[in-house]
């Protein structure tokens, strides 16, 4: 399956306004959790059954003593061959033919959570501790099947998030990475041929997030 839709996450244009993180919660009716400041702007600290989109914020200094602050609007990659589905034998996880969205059904409560998580290179699936059901981004399945773009993309002010037909998005992502490479030799479109949510980065992916480019 290579048609369907894709999302470009161009981190070089992201200012971490976190509109996408909030828009995801708003559209999907997900509650806020009680958080504390843990010495970082990033909050909540991690994805959860009620946080499917999280802007990870990593600061540090590179070799020349120059400071960086990298923003990574993390979410399910909607892989072309989803690792999480390896454990799904009874339709608990579905891959929509038309859009390519990978969907966790209510039946995911019956899955082995650890095995599902281990199958995901990007550390995405999260379990509701009470119902045992697994949750993650749906690519706004209810929106994209009704001619609307995903809520996160809609909220993005800078053009860092772009939604469209997969072929076009892959092309934009690769071109953008090539353009950035002129200034940033480490720039890349991460796993563009394997995932639907394609991250363009300027720097070493691990300087954004441990699992940015996969385990």
């Amino acid at each position: 399956m290579s048609k369907g839709f894709s999302i470009l996450v161009d981190t070089s244009k992201c200012t971490a306004c976190r509109g996408c993180q909030i828009a995801c919660k708003q559209w999907n009716g997900l509650p806020a959790t009680q958080t504390k400041n843990w010495g970082n702007y990033q909050n909540p600290q991690d994805l959860s059954a009620v946080t499917w989109k999280l802007v990870r914020m990593a600061d540090g200094t590179n070799g020349h003593g120059k400071v960086y602050w990298n923003f990574f609007s993390d979410q399910c990659r909607h892989c072309l061959s989803p690792g999480c589905m390896a454990v799904s034998e009874n339709g608990e996880i579905k891959q929509d033919e038309k859009t390519g969205a990978v969907l966790f059904t209510p039946k995911t409560k019956d899955l082995d959570y650890q095995a599902t998580l281990e199958g995901c290179p990007y550390n995405i699936p999260r379990q509701d501790p009470k119902t045992k059901r697994l949750f993650k981004c749906t690519m706004c399945f209810d929106r994209i099947t009704n001619n609307e773009i995903p809520a996160c993309v809609k909220s993005c002010p800078t053009g860092a998030l772009v939604f469209g037909e997969r072929d076009k998005i892959v092309e934009i992502a690769k071109n953008r990475a090539a353009e950035l490479k002129k200034t940033y030799p480490t720039a890349a479109a991460l796993n563009a041929d394997d995932v639907r949510v394609i991250y363009v980065v300027k720097d070493d992916p691990t300087k954004y997030y441990e699992f940015a480019a996969g385990k």
Binding site: R18, Q21, I22, K25, Q26, P31, A32, T33, Q34, T35, K36, N37, G39, Y41, N43, P44
Partner: peptide
């Protein structure tokens, strides 16, 4: 607004 407070909960 709970979502905004979740993202930026307290003084630092």
């Amino acid at each position: 607004q709970p979502w905004l407070l979740e993202a930026q909960p307290e003084l630092f």
